[in-house]
Design a binder for these strands. Structure first.
Lengths: 143, 143
DNA sequence: TATTGTTATACTCTATAACTATA
DNA sequence: TATAGTTATAGAGTATAACAATA
């Protein structure tokens, strides 16, 4: 029991250190954690404010402010929605896309560090275990 | 490579779900993330504001505000420092201690879920790997 | 009527700077 | 002089509520 907790402690510490590292790198470009979160959600393509708010689990009002800042800093633009004149699409600029790639590379690097010693089979088993835990937690949270 | 990243994604999701769960539980008692962080630091015993600020990587002014809120809500008290009349000690109340225990139990539960299938030896190996990663990240951060 | 995104307002967390009491 | 903790002030992130434009 105690050993499991010690390992989890260490794991959480590693994740925190990684986040600090990333935050430091991004902070130098004027990107806060909340803004980075939003940019990350755009990696798969443009989204409306409503979809951003939902996927970030945050209010629409909040998204307005974050997008305002990101537009001013040149990381995203607001484009008219092709079919719904109420809505607009938030789109990554070239500069914003570079930031997202940078975050993806950082994550890839961490994954390499963490799992360097695991075989493909062990990785698969770990993935399955995590799937299970995620399912348990989601049930507990009623999602 | 891709598989490693997928597993890390899942791992980060699990940690986020756990944090959401904990935040929801604590939020119902009026405890925010920042306040929970401070309470967590007191698990090992009373600390001065200066030590709290250092261990939380936050300014002393910030600690003042958090402690104010926690005192008002009855989770901690300020006690005079036995030898330094400038300083005061932040001490958990019975109510605050119960919250810390609740957090510890939550963490123990997550550790159990995550590592249920690992043998003691596998746990040891994982711990060693995490130690290595933590060291690498610390070096990178210059800490 | 319902939804999208905004303005208005308020609270928490955070930082810097200046100050008081004590070391 | 230096340190511990505070007050003063400001900025970012977040929430709720009310509103205009559009669906």
């Amino acid at each position: 029991m105690k050993k499991q907790i010690a390992v989890l402690d260490r794991l959480l510490e590693v994740v925190a250190l990684f986040n600090d590292d990333m935050e430091q790198t991004l902070g130098a470009q004027g990107i806060t954690q909340a803004r980075a979160h939003l940019l990350w959600r755009l990696a798969g393509g443009p989204l409306t404010s409503a979809l951003l708010a939902e996927s970030m689990a945050v209010t629409p009002r909040n998204v307005t402010g974050l997008v305002d800042g990101l537009v001013a800093a040149g990381f995203v633009t607001r484009e008219p929605h092709p079919t719904d004149r109420r809505a607009s699409l938030v789109v990554l600029t070239k500069k914003g896309g570079a930031v997202v790639r940078e975050m993806q590379e950082g994550q890839g690097k961490l994954a390499g560090l963490l799992f360097a010693d695991l075989t493909d089979r062990q990785l698969g088993s770990l993935q399955k275990g995590l799937d299970h835990v995620a399912a348990v937690l989601r049930r507990e949270l009623g999602r």
